[in-house]
């Protein structure tokens, strides 16, 4: 018996360690745990990027039929990440600034940074510049649901607000309170 890589129906290549049964349990040895957790973090972020997923919940490991089935479970060997362990992994991700608890003040749900907020800020500004949206007021909805799909389509508002906050510091954006919610105005550099 050998452990091999596996390509999921969505076209994602799982590493060979994903077919090892112990990979799904929390390891008691510190070094082993750190190494397994690193593997998990890489895997989670790569998959999130592959499927454009922004959120991960502890419940995703407990239930079936959600976006994370291909990674948090391995039906070929009948294993799934134990929820306690997933919560630990999420904690480490937040520590390393690769995710943030969302909403705040709980530890069972995170927003994933497969791009850092700083990178999202640049992507956002580039998009606004290249589509001629400088100096006009846009609602958040205009950004998250543009008529033509953009790199920012379906970005969570919490993440969008962070990115705008970063642009505000360099005077490249301004947050505007509009009647029906919030808006943003971009400026050239």
């Amino acid at each position: 018996m050998a452990f091999t890589t596996h390509t999921t129906p969505s076209g994602f290549l799982l590493p060979s360690i994903h077919s090892a049964p112990p990979f799904f349990s929390q390891q008691p040895n510190k070094t082993t745990l750190a190494s397994f957790t690193d593997h998990w973090i890489k895997l989670i972020l790569a998959y999130a990027r592959h499927r454009r997923l922004f959120y991960l919940h502890v419940e995703d490991a407990e239930t079936s039929g959600n976006d994370w089935d291909e990674v948090l479970k391995n039906e070929r060997i009948n294993r799934h990440v134990l929820p306690v362990y997933l919560e630990h992994i999420m904690g480490v991700m937040v520590e390393k600034n690769l995710a943030a608890f969302e909403p705040a003040r709980q530890t069972r749900s995170v927003m994933l940074y497969w791009r850092l907020p700083e990178e999202w800020a640049e992507t956002l500004h580039e998009w606004a510049t290249s589509t001629g949206h400088l100096n006009t007021i846009m609602t958040f909805y205009d950004v998250t649901d543009p008529p033509i799909e953009s790199p920012l389509s379906s970005i969570p508002v919490a993440l969008l607000r962070k990115a705008i906050g970063i642009l505000t510091k360099t005077n490249r954006a301004q947050l505007i309170a509009a009647a029906d919610g919030e808006g943003v105005r971009f400026f050239s550099k």
């Binding site: 349990s25 390891q27 008691p28 040895n29 070094t31 082993t32 134990l82």
Partner: peptide, 13 residues
Amino acid sequence: LTRDGLCWVDDQD
């Protein structure tokens, strides 16, 4: 397992 890190545990055997 715990002291030497020479093996791994699987809690779902």
